[in-house]
């Protein structure tokens, strides 16, 4: 099931991005995305698990570019979430490969997918809230947020690096 969903995730991410760019008449990003999608699928078949990280960065890079170019927001959000899910499912598939045949893999997959769905919905809700709920910030608040954001993210990354 994980592997099927993984292919669906990759296809959805690439298709949504390509559609978003294509609908606004950008033809070369569509071509690049389709070629990249093909490469990603080949990487899945060859079990190049490391490629999913490149996939995640590429999808988010194109999504950010799409937002910058004011492309279709629903398509871009769908693409980013599908890319995140594909990256996550690649890691899950990698872990499941080390399991024995008689392990309760279906149960583990079910729990994982339930949590992933929950987090995706929560992430989407937060994202939509941030995009569509009006909020005005003065320069001082913005600067404070920048500093707090940098400090917080730095702490998180530092903690993660230390915890290995």
């Amino acid at each position: 099931m994980t592997r099927s969903l993984l292919f669906v995730g990759v296809a959805l991410a690439i298709a949504c991005l390509a559609a978003a760019f294509g609908l606004d008449g950008y033809s070369w990003p569509v071509l690049v995305l389709l070629l990249f999608g093909l490469l990603w699928v080949i990487a899945l078949f060859l079990r190049w698990d490391w490629f999913s990280a490149i996939g995640l960065f590429t999808v988010y890079g194109f999504t950010a570019a799409g937002f910058w170019l004011h492309l279709s927001t629903p398509l871009l959000l769908a693409a980013s979430l599908a890319g995140l899910c594909a990256w996550d499912l690649t890691a899950l598939a990698q872990r499941l490969r080390r399991a024995a045949k008689d392990d309760d893999l279906a149960g583990l997959e079910r729990k994982h997918l339930a949590r992933l769905a929950l987090v995706s919905v929560a992430g989407l809700a937060l994202c939509l809230g941030a995009l569509y709920l009006p909020a005005r910030l003065s320069f001082g608040w913005a600067l404070l947020l920048v500093l707090v954001g940098v400090w917080g993210a730095g702490r998180v990354v530092n903690w993660l690096v230390r915890s290995g």
Partner: peptide, 21 residues
Amino acid sequence: LSGLLTLHPAFLALALPLLAY
């Protein structure tokens, strides 16, 4: 960072699913 530097809210919004994850 790019959202804060460019003051583009969509970049910030895009980081939220990742942070939730």
